[in-house]
Design a binder for these strands. Structure first.
Lengths: 150, 150
DNA sequence: TATTGTTATACTCTATAACTATA
DNA sequence: TATAGTTATAGAGTATAACAATA
């Protein structure tokens, strides 16, 4: 995205513009800070999800993340190749793959979360700690107010 | 994006998640509110830009928006087909197209901006007016703090 | 030779359809 | 017959390369 000095205030004050610009910036910083962990933001989301839940099939995990099963295949292929997750056929239903974090996966996740926390502080560096909390609180309320969660 | 009740707080409290979810919601509402004007959010951005500046070539306008010239062609094709903008060969340099709003374009823009304002209030309905202002102010500071504007 | 607008091509991301193995 | 995982295919969106007109 270009510098916004030339766009005019009518555009640069629009909510969509501000959100998009901020998101792009945060994603860029995240990517940079996550690089040493060897994973991307999307992979971090998968690891967090797998860590927070009882083992479940890859399709169910994908549904929670809003990732369809065909995309989930490649995502897990990558994580498995890095040794961070393991797929195991469910003994009760051999069509299903139960996906679980490996020990390496858990260690990588812990590192990545710390890196991601640093990235978030970095992205919000323009705010002081109490403003950061305010911003997070307001954003959380806006985010959870969706009328028709898809 | 799915409901977030099943994702766990470690994921749903992440800044990237909150921003993305909010942006998707705002874009969806924008689209709905802009529909009667017959334009999309991206087209609104182009109209706002053209309205705020002296007439300039389509390539320069695209650069400001971060849209490359090849994508700009189709974008302007659409706006021109709707009668909202006009392309005219620059007499001083006949390689250039000077792009300008038509009268219809200005009227459509005025309507669309009002609709977009309503959409933003709708998207921030979870906040009261003073909180909305606070949120906007904080978001603006975060958005304009980018270190390396691409 | 370089630049503007344009068109054609390729690449990415994701969704849809088709295939297999299990149920 | 239906479902989980996989693979193959197709669609949107965007970037890169090539082309025509003009400088």
């Amino acid at each position: 995205m270009p510098t916004d000095g030339d766009l005019g205030p009518r555009l640069t004050r629009r909510l969509t513009y501000l959100l998009k610009r901020t998101l792009l910036d945060v994603e860029e910083i995240q990517q940079e800070y996550l690089a040493p962990s060897g994973i991307g933001a999307r992979e971090l989301a998968v690891l967090l999800l797998l860590d927070s839940r009882a083992p479940e099939s890859q399709q169910r995990a994908g549904e929670r993340l809003g990732v369809d099963r065909t995309s989930m295949v490649g995502l897990l292929d990558g994580l498995e190749a890095k040794g961070l997750v393991e797929r195991q056929a469910d003994p009760n239903d051999r069509r299903r793959n139960v996906v679980a974090l490996t020990d390496t996966g858990r260690r990588t996740l812990a590192d990545a979360v710390k890196a991601s926390d640093r990235a978030e502080r970095r992205a919000l560096a323009a705010l002081d700690p109490s403003e950061r909390e305010q911003f997070r609180a307001l954003l959380t309320r806006v985010a959870s107010s969706r009328r028709d969660p898809t």
